[in-house]
Amino acid sequence: MDHSTHIEEIARRYPAERRFSLAILQDIQREFNYIPAEALPIVAARLDTPQAHLYALATFYKSLSLVPKGKHVVKLCDGTACHMRGAGNLLGSLSRQLRLDADGRTDDGQFSVELVNCLGSCALAPVMVVGEAYYGKVSLEQLPTLVDSYREGGENDE
């Protein structure tokens, strides 16, 4: 299935009402790891809403991204508890280890790293999430091994 057909299919999961704009964009984000440029006109036509409206949503809501994310999205929780227990140091260490660019991505497209708002697992601070997997009480020492397990050929790279 090419992108356009796939996007069309996702948009049709919901009734053609403007209130489902966000839900459709979230599903597209989940599917492609970003909102491809061709998605906006397709969804706009389906919901009979201006593209500008969808563009506004895509830039307002943090869960949506107009640029592709890495294959593995690493979320470092920067909730207060994680912040107090060293989330900033984890980010610094990851940046150095992975040589992240200004947008927090690696140039091979394998990883993107983001500092995110509280993930609600404060008792396990600091928390890191790779894809859907939660890691609690992450230490600087374990970071390299953990990251390596997601590299190509690693045990967690599917």
Partner: peptide, 21 residues
Amino acid sequence: VRGGGAFVCGESTALMASIEG
């Protein structure tokens, strides 16, 4: 309705705007 990752949507009128799309 799944939130979009905006803290301000915890505010009542912002939340309702978000539900409306």
